[in-house]
Nucleic acid binder design. Sequence first.
RNA 1: AGGGGUGUCGCCAAGCGGUAAGGCAACGGACUCUGACUCCGUCAUUCCGAGGUUCGAAUCCUCGCACCCCUGCCA
Length: 560
Amino acid sequence: MTTEIQTPEKPTNFIRNIINEDLKNGKHTGIVTRFPPEPNGYLHIGHAKSICLNFGLALDYQGRCHLRFDDTNPAKEEIEYEDSIRENVKWLGFQWGEHLHYASDYFQAFYDHAVTLIKKELAFVDNLSAEEMRAYRGNLNEPGKESPWRNRPVEENLDLFQRMRDGEFADGSKVVRLKIDMASPNLNLRDPVIFRIKKVEHHRTGDTWCIYPMYDYAHCISDSIEGITHSICTLEFEDHRPLYDWVLDKLEVPCHPQQIEFARLNLSYTVMSKRKLLELVQEKLVDGWDDPRMPTLVGLRRRGFTPQSIRAFCETIGVGKSDSFIDMSILEEAVREDLNQRAPRAMAVLKPLKVVIDGYPEGDGEEFEAANHPNDPTLGTRKVPFSKVIYIERDDFQEEPEKGFFRLAPGREVRLRFAYIVRCEEVVKDESGEVVELRVSYDPASRGGTAPDGRKIKGTIHWVSANHAMDAEVRLYDRLFTVPNPGGKNEADYRENINPKSIEVLTGCKLEPSLAQAGVDDRFQFERLGYFCPDSRDSKPESLVFNRTATLRDSWTEKK
RNA sequence: AGGGGUGUCGCCAAGCGGUAAGGCAACGGACUCUGACUCCGUCAUUCCGAGGUUCGAAUCCUCGCACCCCUGCCA
């Protein structure tokens, strides 16, 4: 008998294999996954991998994926993070529909199940202090010792637990622990704590609780309550799986989801830990959580990354169990691939060099019809004004052209994109010898850019008409760190490896007028330079600010 | 008395006893009004190592080696 659910012909991975098997042998008829962030920080590209995995699986197998906030520790969690997380997931293009859940929705269930465990003599209230408990736990090589409170009578445990809940005891004075095995080689099984006292107001439940469940205990029960079939988490929870299974085995719960672990994302030239990200923000080493150099989703968004490109990235890196280290260039390549297809082209001169076209009439000049995309006519065309004085990129002129350089140089011809072929006739310098202006002649017969005599013009450069140009600030972003693994073991303090050139602010850049209409979500390719977008925070109609998302590939500079 | 994982091309990653997919990178070449894009071609006789089983092993067995994770009342 074959399954009705068609197995997608996507690149396979071990998780899909498990699901396929479960569907085939009838263990499940559909799948339910979940993305369970703790609302204590901003989502980053590593979370995107998990989001794409969980929501992607649900989509492919026509199941569903829940968004569940793992809000079991009110001391660390804040409502503002929640909003950001919801928005990020939505921005990535995924929907949880009815299934927005909170671990805090299940607080009563956690409590009731703990009572059951106590009654079954599988849990007890412990008076040991945190330090004592650490001492009793043993270590990697030695077994732990049982707490002297481990064999309290059930009634006493029940009474104490009730009073913990009622707020009779101080924070830290008591916990409830499972009775598993203090000699287990798996430290997670040495009578783990499942409830602790924290007289802290919870952002959703207020002060109705002063005891809060621990992750290991809450997570498996939450999964079960929601009917999750495959509970996907990262590798460091592998050691917790026996505990996940133990709890569900001892309790009468709706179902027993299968926990599956995969390798978290490591990206070169950035850091991914919440702690380091937070430090970067707090120490003002970056401009905030949404600094375009940050690997956070808000940062990537402000930088100009599209949801599509991030999803494509997650698709291409795959899912496995071996510790992987993905090169930043893969992420960059993902945006280029997406934007190359969709971004309208425009011309912008970042480091302007004035060029006067001798023989060209003074005045308003003329307009050229420019294609918005060289390979996709459906993106239409726009008018680009041209006149006697224009700006070109300083880098597109070399007084003494190096070998292989085929742009503008004294006596050489170059094509102004969409406009005319010009020849450099004169180089004007200031007292210090710096080139400040070029005088060029132009070939009126080459209007539009093609030479009527069919002569080959190797170089085509971009330009902006001086009279029509709009001034703008352009921020050139690069990798935040100078070393591939700034958070690695061998790197001293990652702060010392921050790339001083990770942001270069250019002012007085010249943009073609059509860019004035750019909206926050618009992405452009500035021809021959890269992909850019207006800065969502700082760009104003009267003072434009653009961010560079990524450069174009450049086999010329690379070769040098 | 430690336990749990992982090792396939520079980076990811398929493969599940029948003779090493794919992507990115790299390297050639074609095309080009973006040194972009696109397009063609090349790129692991070998799968951490050593033995063994088998007609046949990356896949099974044995013994090693390397790396990652675990001693929160964090998740």
